[in-house]
Design a protein around this nucleic acid. Structure first.
Lengths: 271, 271
DNA sequence: CCTGTTGTTTCGTCAGTCGAAACGCCGTTT
DNA sequence: AAACGGCGTTTCGACTGACGAAACAACAGG
């Protein structure tokens, strides 16, 4: 509201950004989060003017990215958004390949199976197959999270470039639960263990009473491009199932990596 | 190139369009069609300047809508696009519900099962489940087509608002094959039959040697919101399978409509 | 009938966008 | 090795078209 000066310096300073487009993209993401809103509501949610919001919506609608419910005067994502998603999926060998693996892993373990990638300093879920059981962790594709808490995120961080690790380790670590690792030293040690073991189990770091078992996914060059994980309520984590889950997650992560062209250690080394 | 005047009149005349956003959206759709292109290639594909293309890409990348392959200097859709698609799917009861029905219909008939909607004066595929058989029609979500040729499109046209029907009937009808209906009178008659029968079979109208069987999908208010169709090679269309397909398509279309809240004619009327 | 809210439209100003052209960086060719 | 062509990136100034503010219209509820 009164950050005019700051905003301008940021925008012009940050370089080649086209402000209108940036705002339109933000509006689009906001709409995806709160479909069925009207102009005014969206305007206040984005901090933009009513006129601007209206114009952007008008333009996005003309491209089919948003759809307007004429009588209720309300907006939601349009078919072009659907198509973009469909094509994005096909364009990414990782996601396209992962779908089968997620389905297999979820049906084997009867728990949520997730595929996470690192996006800057956040983790993001880009694929998921939900547990068939009624009691399950709520998760959704597109959900962003931290890098320092939870099995999948810690795997991503463990294999991230050094500058990313340093940045995360040197910034304050938010405590989501009592179990969240907040001491940089302890986190570093945890990451080292993950690199040594090639997988990890974390309990209650992100949410109380939930566990997460994760392993890295590698591409043809051996680079870790994602983390495959299974999560569920700790109530279902007894010693037997724990061994089971660890084996299955590792197994499927390796399988996925192979399909991406990875020619790393063969099955004998694993187990 | 030399259409400066025309472009301007169109843009300013068309009203509240924000040109940058419009162009960015077009660029985004182009990228989805030709992933792995560079700045220059995309610039010539969209007819935009290199500088503009670069700036738009830069902006879209900052929002995660496109992803840049740093070493190969090449662009593809980003994770935000994926997320938008995911959310668009969830926001549309039609699409979310249709997935099961498409899977069931496709497995029953062993042919492609499609869900089409009308988008202005075009038909568009918004859901699909491919035939399990090796010989199948190529189709993809997001593909736009005409309204006057093919089973699904004609169903959409038959139940479209009158002004849409009039516009289509009074404009030249492109002949895709020898079987395409190009005479307005004949098309009108065909549409009337579709409205009477509540389903249709069309052979070779859009592509030679392919058939399409379609039926309307209705929402809670009884409005036709989509067409459910099955298509395949005419080689597999013998009298027995034809009856089978007609029954299955109608059956599944009704089932889908019911799930959308339609309380129309009960099963006795159908058959 | 009034009132509060929402969506739409208008208008003038100025910031921000755009095109052209120059630049630097490759990989290939001569 | 040097010259070339093609690419992505950067700069710059002119101009325009995007923006905010505020008026207007269209409702819904009381």
């Amino acid at each position: 509201m009164t950050q005019t000066k700051e905003e301008k310096t940021r925008e012009t300073g940050d370089a080649y950004l086209v402000a209108s487009v940036e705002r339109a993209a933000q509006l689009l993401l906001i709409i995806s989060e709160m479909p069925g809103s009207g102009v005014t509501e969206l305007a206040s949610a984005t901090g933009m003017t009513k006129s601007l919001t209206f114009r952007l919506l008008y333009t996005l609608e003309s491209q089919g990215l948003v759809r307007k419910n004429a009588e209720r005067r309300t907006y939601a994502l349009g078919y072009s958004a659907l198509i973009l998603g469909e094509r994005a999926r096909r364009q990414s060998p990782l996601i396209a390949t992962a779908e089968d693996v997620l389905a297999a892993l979820s049906s084997k373990t009867r728990e949520n199976a997730l595929l996470l990638v690192r996006d800057g300093l956040s983790s993001m879920c880009i694929g998921m197959k939900e547990s068939p059981q009624p009691l399950r962790i709520f998760a959704s594709v597109g959900r962003a999270g931290p890098l320092h808490a939870g099995g999948g995120p810690k795997v991503l961080l463990a294999f991230a470039p050094e500058d990313v690790r340093e940045t995360v380790l040197s910034s304050p670590l938010e405590a989501f639960t009592d179990e969240t690792i907040v001491a940089p030293g302890a986190l570093e040690a945890s990451l080292a263990r993950i690199r040594r073991d090639g997988q990890t189990l974390s309990v209650g770091e992100l949410d109380p009473n939930t566990f997460s078992i994760a392993a890295p996914v590698r591409d043809h060059s051996g680079t870790v491009v994602a983390a495959l994980s299974v999560n569920g309520p700790t109530a279902r984590l007894d010693p037997a199932s724990e061994q089971d889950f660890l084996r299955e997650v590792l197994d499927h992560a390796v399988q996925l990596s192979r399909r991406l062209g990875w020619a790393g250690p063969d099955a004998a080394v694993l187990r």
